[in-house]
Design a protein around this nucleic acid. Structure first.
Lengths: 214, 214
DNA sequence: ATAGATTGCGCAATCC
DNA sequence: GGGATTGCGCAATCTA
């Protein structure tokens, strides 16, 4: 997203939420509950009911970046022997702090050359360079996209909820002001009436004991 | 972060914010303003005044992952010619949709082999494989870390503000209930008094339609 | 123990 | 030009 688009979107969403606020007003409660549930209970796929995309859209990796295979390569830290490259089929990457494994289809680099990370080499033929490793990566990429979308939605939602709550707050405070003023007026009126009606005896205060003419 | 730690941190921050709320209570306004300003105006380094880390902490890349040099390698998509690897010094990566440029110190891959991305090859000797390119990358990494920290802080803040606002809302609604009840009592009392003391005028009613004696 | 979810991080593109 | 943001892939870790 570039700035103008995101700003426009934000504004649009704000307007929409304002409309929603106007329509159903008694929805201000349970902010934390929803957030926590959306944070922990991710068993439901699209909590916000976004009609845009669901699981399928993620599995269809049709982003403009995804044409073809989309490989990504890897770490290879701390190697002064840069000349003997991957074509040696045995030296380069795959082990450098277990970060960013080398990949490149039908090419295998056995984990080598890093003294601190030699143990995982034996670990169950790790890092199959182009077998079902790609499958796992692709699945994880899908999951990552999904999770990040979810996070984005969650953040937007929280933001809008905050705005909504702020508006509600303002309204409530206004209402409180009104009520307070009204109450003051009434109290004043009552006390005045007490003053005037003092000749009939029965002086008392409005809030508690109002049994004059009993 | 794992869950318990993050939950504990969240609770701690919540308590802190509650304290802050108790100290200065008139701060509930201008939620959106702050958010937007923190979103757009990023000229200030640490807006929340977090005493934890500032620019220096970012430049000192001392994360447990950062020992040594920490390289990262790159894309290389769409190459059926996997056998002729990097040692050919001219074929592999660097151009695949301009993603994840190959790196590996004192090894240079000239951008090749992708028909759609041939133009940037001429572009000012791009992708210096290990010169000041590394410097730029390192600086960008620092900036990225900083930006993400900021985003994290912002999100937490918004969240806590939402909770805060919700509490405030509850309080306000309670107060409104109280006021309304009180007002009803008073009104009832007044009307009763009107019934009984019908001989005295002076009716002025605050809100809507109790103007008997006008 | 296997798969999805979350997260920190680096890279590159883009914004400002 | 240089910091700030952002989408994305990778790997580690968590969780169910």
């Amino acid at each position: 997203f570039n700035r103008p688009v995101s700003q426009f979107l934000l504004l649009l969403l704000l307007l929409l939420l304002l409309l929603l606020l106007l329509m159903s007003d008694s929805r201000v409660s349970s902010v934390i509950q929803e957030w926590v549930s959306s944070y922990q209970g991710q068993s439901h796929s699209s909590p916000s009911g976004n009609p845009q995309m669901d699981l399928l859209s993620y599995s269809q990796g049709l982003r403009p970046d995804d044409r073809g295979v989309t490989e990504q390569m890897m770490g290879l830290s701390y190697l002064p022997y840069t000349t003997s490259c991957l074509s040696n089929s045995s030296n380069s990457v795959t082990a450098a702090s277990a970060h960013h494994e080398g990949h490149s289809p039908q090419q295998d680099f056995s984990p080598f050359l890093h003294p601190s990370m030699r143990a995982p080499l034996i670990k169950r033929s790790i890092s199959k360079d182009s077998a079902e490793y790609r499958l796992r990566r692709e699945r994880n990429n899908i999951a990552v996209r999904k999770s990040r979308d979810k996070a984005r939605r969650r953040i937007m939602l929280t933001q809008h909820r905050a705005m909504q709550l702020q508006d509600e707050n303002q309204r409530l405070q206004l209402r409180i002001g009104q009520l307070t003023q009204e109450l003051d007026t009434l109290k004043h009126l009552l006390s005045q009436r007490h003053m005037q009606g003092a000749e009939e005896g029965t002086g008392d205060t409005p809030s508690e004991s109002t049994a004059y003419y009993l």
